[in-house]
Design a protein around this nucleic acid. Structure first.
Lengths: 224, 224
DNA sequence: TGTACATCAGTGAACGCGCGTTCACTGATGTAC
DNA sequence: TGTACATCAGTGAACGCGCGTTCACTGATGTAC
């Protein structure tokens, strides 16, 4: 059955079959959507299993695609990690930003605080951030991205502080905002089950301290 | 040349040659010392290269021994990780404990604070703790050990707080101590270069807030 | 003080496996004429 | 409205490598008699 048609009907053999085309980011709506779905899967793997288990195969499995297809969007694992870090930080900053605006000058600061502290109830979100910190601790690029994220985070908080205390020196507001963020991130470790559990008594002191840093009454010190 | 001496001179062939003997922990001074040296090497690898590079071969190389020898002391990688975590937490707790006692009732709290904050200048120490947090975030055993460590840490701080404010409810002192530890660990991220850099202005607010939690004057709020 | 023997300390080679990566390939989708 | 063709989207197999682990082995050190 080996048909010998030297001048058969066209038989349009593809040309040299190049390696994966450039396709740095998704150029098409569908591509953009798939890329996002792949990052969703990667985020889920990182939050539930950890960085050591964040393999290309595990992400492809979680997304329900084949390994080769994941690599069409993220040719190297480092590309996936960089995009994932960017996604996590971007989403988190958008959340902070919208909270700060919604709760600005008018809204209830205590409610904003509750919302932020509520994030600590999601263990996989906190896990995600422990991984982000570990990434930043060992990789300069990641550290740059994480540093920029927290600088923007503190910037939002500083604006919030200045809204409350219009007379305050901007630099002082910024310092207070930075300490606010330090405490917030430290609290995540101790309220999520990783290094401790949230308790009402300690939460009360925590809230008072955070509100104090925002420049609100009922702030400091003596418990009970 | 195949000599056929069925009743040759003894030829004391070893018996069945068992697998590595039990040797759970080092039974000998030398063994204890070697074990410590191997953990030194592992700690160095973890602090400088990160958890993903903490391979049995990398640790053996760093310690100047052969892979098989490392495995004589730590048959499985999980054994090494568990021992390493224990070592890091034990050493850190001993440091906190001696600081709290030295600076107790008599000493200068601000100096104790300076010493604790000084630890953030050692990037590899902070890196170590980001790895510890990531371990705890994904492994129940590790979370237990880390939780116990921080509970003991907070206990030392709570005693310190009660020394300063004898009338304070012990539970209140403990809550203040817990928030102190939260802020301390959060600050580590932001003062070590991982997510930010220490600045004098922010350090001033940080110190004031930490001292306030310890129940000392010059505590809270208004900057400048 | 010997001597026999068990255990401790350390080596070296090999294993199977999962990893990131490469690559040739096919089908679907857009787009120019 | 076709038709040709480039690009996009997705598959499947194979690669070389480093990993944790296994294991047989040797030399050093203690210890009982």
């Amino acid at each position: 059955m080996t048909s010998e048609n030297p001048a058969g009907p066209a038989d349009p053999v593809h040309p040299v079959s190049r390696v994966h085309p450039v396709s740095p980011s998704a150029p098409t709506p569908k591509g953009h959507q798939r890329r996002a779905a792949l990052l969703d899967a990667a985020e889920h793997v990182l939050g539930s299993a950890g960085g050591a288990e964040l393999t290309m195969r595990a992400v492809a499995d979680a997304a329900g695609v084949r390994l080769g297809h994941l690599q069409y969007y993220f040719p190297a694992r480092s590309d996936l990690l960089a995009a994932l870090l960017d996604r996590i930080l971007t989403a988190s900053l958008a959340r902070v930003s919208s909270l700060a605006q919604a709760g600005g000058a008018a809204g209830d600061p205590a409610a904003v605080l509750d919302t932020l502290l509520g994030d600590h109830d999601d263990p996989s979100l906190v896990r995600l951030f422990t991984e982000v910190w570990a990434m930043a601790a060992h990789d300069g690029d990641a550290a740059g991205a994480v540093g920029a994220f927290y600088a923007a985070y503190a910037g939002h908080v500083a604006r919030f502080v200045r809204d409350r205390s219009p007379g305050l020196d901007p630099a002082a507001a910024h310092s207070r905002a930075e300490v606010f963020v330090m405490l917030m991130e430290g609290a995540a470790l101790f309220r999520s089950g990783i290094a401790g559990r949230a308790t009402p008594a300690t939460d009360a002191v925590l809230r008072r301290t955070l509100l104090g840093l925002l420049g609100l009454p009922g702030s400091e010190g003596g418990a009970a």
